[in-house]
Design a protein around this nucleic acid. Structure first.
Lengths: 363, 363
DNA sequence: GTTAGCAGTCGCCAGCGACGAGTGCTAACA
DNA sequence: TGTTAGCACTCGTCGCTGGCGACTGCTAAC
């Protein structure tokens, strides 16, 4: 990052090299580069000259050769330099934008569907694994809850949070209780705890434990527990798509099949998204994490492209894709940026037309 | 299936061959079989005798040799014969039963957790991919629904079905509406539609369309739609675990890595479970689908072991594992059987202690 | 009916050489 | 000093070969 810029000619060569390598997957030779550069640039250089510069780029740690008689390949640092300085900002073709927008308008007003659709579009468009978390308010507060008698002493607790997320939990009581009693209790407790955070609920239980009946106490404890489970940085579920697309890349078909297994494992247990959260905490825009910059060993030859979406300071979620290090960065970034913008707009549109009906922002 | 039984000696040989092959993964030779049989059976036979019988078993289509200088391997038909006639019924070790039960008691009364746990235990115990669907009533009826005002004209519809499943859907109305109005409307409509099936709701809309206000009409339409989406044979979601475990089998590390991708794809889109449903419609007990008996091309060297759990005629779901054809069938069947029994018992325990609070079985 | 022994088949693997791709270096040129 | 053509060199890939060993099917004897 803090690396000095290299000479303009070296930059041109590095850029051509990355683009060539990304599109072919083969180590690229001085000859191919000479040809490419002479096409793009009017008068190019001979292969021998390129070789001098390649040797120099290799000293800089930006490229390497897999073996002596092979061409060059970008290193993680090389990709980093490319992404930071050389890659042009690209926009999605209008036609593609239209196509994507169209798909969103098909599933009107279904928040979950938007999130799922985003993952699916990403996976398809970038032939990569995509992960999207549902939007989450920065601070979880109780909006409303209901209790439904399922069976004599089994109660279903349905809790709606301020971001619209719904949790449900079965609760088994010591005594049988009727739906009427439950409804009354729910009305009473809703008034009392509306807008409260997990900490506030817990505190009030502490302070006034004796004023609750046993059944109420059990219910409020459950509420506190549910609220406490909500951590905006560690989403409890998420939509993931495109594992198959990811695995279809040539980097997996050659070499150790064990790699496939490890990647699938990391994706399944989703250990990599939480690890991403800090990167996004305070940052704006699209983040790129290249190869070895990844925390997880298994992802050392993969890159992540992640971004936040949502309404700043209020509600948000993560969008990310995982693809081989050798990928088309500018396109990937453009697609991710477009979709985060899309989701943010949709969120704002749904949540903004008028203030919330129940004011529960302040207590 | 309708094949004649082969001679007792051939059966003994086939049985030893399958067991040996399952445990080693190598084609088994006449010599190894002769040794195995002389250990188990007091006085065995020489390798040459075995070879005669092997040639005969090959004529029957029960085994084959991958190439001339290799040992024998069971065919799908061979496995089928083994599962049908030769394999002993095995029970889980008491220690293992205890371990599994213990894990279930850890997550008390959380239906979703039971289902998820079942998938995870299966994947772990059998080193295979496991899929479990949540329990679903055979006929979907409305138990209860609530409406929550999220924003001025955005309403969250929370619908509880008779099997305890909860659906939620955002509804955008033409006009703003207050929570009070919503609550009143919900109470009215709940009384009217409680216990109704999708068809019944649709029918009543038809019959008395004019008696509904516009907003009510929108809500009831949504209810009908949600109820109609519920098809007990095609679960909309499911818990799947153990893709990584499945991929760690040696059958994937040798040979085409493309196979891995295809299997992951089939698992992700879960196209194989619906295909299973008919097999289980009318059948009792554990079903085994071996190799080529599978519908999906990609699963032709895999076997499925599936079973229904639940309360007969009322509510139920599916439990299944997917593993390479070369697997330990008797153990797999024992584990699947134990877990379906476990789930059925837990379901009965939760849903039976007393009748439902709200009688909604008949209208 | 059973078995030992033997010839025969074939997959696996290590070793070898030809080939070709691509480099670094040198020397010459503008 | 920068650029370039040419050349020697390295090394991965591929196809071929021969030896080894695993198993089999067959034969002949018990």
């Amino acid at each position: 990052m803090a690396e000095h810029r290299v000479s303009t000619r070296k930059e041109a060569i590095l850029r051509a090299l990355v683009e060539e390598y990304v599109s072919t997957g083969e180590p690229v030779s001085s000859k191919v580069l000479a040809d490419q550069l002479s096409i793009v640039h009017g008068g190019g250089y001979g292969a021998a000259t390129i070789r001098h510069e390649l040797a120099s780029l290799e000293d800089d740690g930006l490229i390497l050769q897999p073996h002596v008689s092979a061409g060059r390949v970008p290193t993680d640092l090389g990709y980093r330099y490319f992404v930071g300085h050389l890659m042009g900002e690209s926009r999605l073709a209008l036609e593609e934008q239209r196509l994507i927008r169209h798909q969103f308008y098909q599933v009107q007003h279904q928040l979950d569907e938007w999130v799922r659709l985003t993952a699916s579009i990403l996976a398809q468009a970038l032939q990569s694994a995509a992960v999207v978390t549902p939007p989450r308010a920065l601070e979880a507060r109780l909006k409303h809850f209901e209790m439904l008698a399922l069976y004599e002493s089994v109660v279903l607790l349905v809790v709606v949070l301020n971001d619209g997320a719904v949790r449900q939990e079965r609760l088994v009581l010591d005594l049988p209780i009727t739906q009427d009693d439950l409804s009354r209790m729910a009305r009473r407790l809703n008034e009392r705890f509306q807008g409260a955070t997990a900490d506030e609920v817990a505190e009030r239980i502490q302070r006034a434990a004796t004023t609750f009946e046993p059944v109420e106490h059990a219910v409020v404890m459950a509420l506190a527990r549910i609220l406490a489970q909500v951590d905006p940085l560690v989403p409890d579920y998420f939509y993931s798509e495109g594992i198959a697309q990811l695995l279809s890349h040539q980097e997996f078909s050659h070499g150790d099949p064990e790699r496939m297994r490890r990647v699938v494992e990391v994706l399944r247990q989703n250990s990599f998204l939480p690890a991403l959260a800090p990167h996004l905490q305070d940052s704006e825009g699209v983040q790129v994490i290249i190869g070895g910059e990844n925390e997880s060993e298994a992802l050392h030859d993969m890159s992540l492209i992640v971004a936040r979406y949502g309404v700043k300071g209020e509600i948000g979620g993560l969008v990310g894709i995982l693809a081989p290090t050798r990928m088309h960065y500018s396109r990937a970034i453009a697609v991710v940026r477009y979709l985060t913008q899309m989701l943010s707009d949709l969120l704002a549109e749904t949540y903004r037309p008028g203030r919330p009906v129940e004011e529960n922002v302040d207590e």
